[in-house]
Design a protein around this nucleic acid. Structure first.
Ligand code: MN
Ligand code: MN
Ligand code: ZN
Ligand code: ZN
Lengths: 129, 129
DNA sequence: ATGAGGGATGCAACTGTATTGCAAAGTTAT
DNA sequence: ATAACTTTGCAATACAGTTGCATCCCTCAT
């Protein structure tokens, strides 16, 4: 896991462990709840480090809380690696649809594409009983 | 313009006028700067009303400030009406790409699609000299 | 072993946007 | 004119994110 060049401290191990257990993306406030002692700042900086080293990626689902999820092994967070995200308006969980790549967009002339954020919202399969 | 069922107060006229003049989407903080006297709350609620009545639509471009832009005449803000947005990382402006519809996504079984937020970021034609 | 250097952590303070409560002012209908 | 309803303004609050700074911890060179 630390093929990503991150110094493995105790705290980081714990955070990564929590992240690995998630079935949906997780935000800083929720991550905080998983710890008794840990400070928000430390978690914040841990996530930031993880993101910079491309161990996780950021997801802005429009809920006001930025969420994070593990990147796939080979992910470099470039346009080709990007996938669609799904926000359930019932359970408020955000899922990575790892196998649904973001569609290619033809921008108007003169526009340079660097990245895409695509969030689909609706109701997830769990919430549809 | 008030085919949208909004009582046209003086304030609202002014806000709509500012919105109409914009070439890019505008957020609450920036909208505030266009007025000397107006209160943030009033502007906030004006935008909210406009949005509910589908005169404008919300754009969350991930910058931390929600932006708004006029809807097209016939827009009902349903999946079919949605278009792609572009955030320029140079000028930080967010543009509606009204003529680029959001691509159709095939969700995994059990998922119900209600809406899509698709924001492309990169460099706009203005900033590329 | 020891002490310096550099990163990691924890605490507190602060930022900026969004949001709500409440009273005053304005509008509309009887 | 009065009552009912809507809009506005001000103040206070909520909340995620962020920064400064002191302290702790680990590693490395002496
Ligand atoms: Mn993802
Ligand atoms: Mn738009
Ligand atoms: Zn759900
Ligand atoms: Zn630009």
């Amino acid at each position: 896991m630390r093929a990503r060049n991150i110094k493995p401290t105790a705290m980081r191990e714990l955070v990564l462990e929590v992240l690995s257990r998630q079935t949906a993306a997780i935000g800083l406030p929720e991550l905080e709840e998983h710890f008794e002692k840990a400070d928000r700042t430390t978690l914040y900086r841990t996530l930031k480090t993880f993101e910079e080293k491309k161990l996780i990626h950021k997801i802005d689902d429009g809920t006001g809380t930025v969420k994070y999820a593990l990147c796939s092994e080979t992910c470099e967070c470039e346009p080709d690696d990007l996938h669609v995200h799904f926000l359930c308006k019932k359970c408020e969980k955000t899922y990575c649809l790892y196998n649904i790549p973001v569609p290619t967009i033809n921008l108007p002339p003169g526009f340079q594409l660097d990245g895409v954020n695509m969030v689909v919202n609706g109701i997830c399969s769990n919430c549809r009983t």
